[in-house]
């Protein structure tokens, strides 16, 4: 098929549009000056040093990281059995269950954030970390459910039936046969859910307390009062983290094939 020159031009322009801003941040992060300028002057790593000396970034990174890991693990614990039930059994209200598992992605996150704020923090008087953990679990459970569900759908049911006809019970079959075969789907789901929990702003902005904010919210607060290349440097570090996550998932997808 002939490809058109116009389309090629659009491809170049659109990919430039997608990557130029990220490259610009990377370039400004190495500047020697104390403000963001372009083209950047000199070369220094002082802004990276400052990231590691800024307490609010370190604290919020620790909070975001641990809460996101926790939320992801709970989402998987809840999502894997749910996905297995929907994929392998026929039952009344299956459609409804599926819709329910997908609903967190259909309701605006700020709305969920506000609702959880009034319920968990104001009404139940639980602390912010509990609120963050439950909120982020709810917000990423769809990823766990969907990605693992796709993995189970791809796994041939007749293999399970064969194991059962040879006398294994369902629980044994699940842990010995199904789980090892969907491990790559579970790993992908883990990474996808983790990065989405870690990056979440609209929900976590409602669930914070003094000294207890997630990293993206801490960045927003920092930018409001300081406009220096520290945020550029931190952005580059976060991009490296995203890149690693992406490379690992690619590898998983490939080895799964």
């Amino acid at each position: 098929m002939k490809k058109s020159k116009f389309q090629l031009l659009m491809v170049i322009l659109v990919y430039f549009f997608i990557f130029a801003p990220l490259l610009l941040i990377a370039m400004t992060s190495f500047t020697e000056e104390s403000y963001i300028s372009f083209p950047p002057h000199g070369f220094s790593l002082r802004w990276y040093e400052k990231v590691f000396n800024t307490k609010s970034f370190l604290d919020s990174f620790k909070l975001s990281f641990t809460i996101s890991i926790g939320a992801t693990l709970i989402a998987l614990l809840v999502g894997i059995p749910g996905a297995y039930a929907v994929s392998r059994f026929q039952f009344k209200g299956k459609r409804l269950i599926k819709d329910l598992f997908f609903s967190p992605n259909l309701i605006p996150q700020v709305v969920v954030g506000f609702a959880l704020f009034t319920f968990i923090i104001v009404r139940l008087r639980l602390n912010v970390s509990v609120a963050l953990l439950t909120g982020l679990t709810v917000s990423v459970v769809t990823y766990a459910f969907r990605t693992v569900g796709a993995g189970i759908d791809r796994f041939d049911y007749s293999i399970e039936e064969a194991a059962m006809s040879l006398g294994a019970n369902r629980v044994t079959v699940f842990f010995k046969i199904v789980l090892p075969n969907i491990s790559s789907a579970i790993l992908s789901a883990f990474l996808l859910a983790f990065i989405n929990a870690f990056n979440n702003v609209p929900l976590t902005i409602f669930l914070s307390a003094p000294g207890m904010v997630t990293l993206p919210v801490a960045m927003m607060n920092y930018i409001e009062y300081n406009y220096d290349p520290t945020v550029s440097a931190l952005s580059v570090l976060l991009m490296i983290m995203s890149l690693l996550i992406m490379l690992i998932s690619e590898k998983i997808v490939r080895s799964g094939k």
Partner: peptide, 28 residues
């Protein structure tokens, strides 16, 4: 596909999570 009661147990944690921390807070 066999029909049995397993699915209640399997979907229960998810239902509980989403009912308690999504549906009830929203309705409230």
């Amino acid at each position: 596909m066999k029909k049995n009661g397993w699915y209640y147990l399997l979907i229960f944690p998810g239902l509980l999570l989403l009912a308690l921390f999504l549906m009830i807070p929203l309705l409230r």
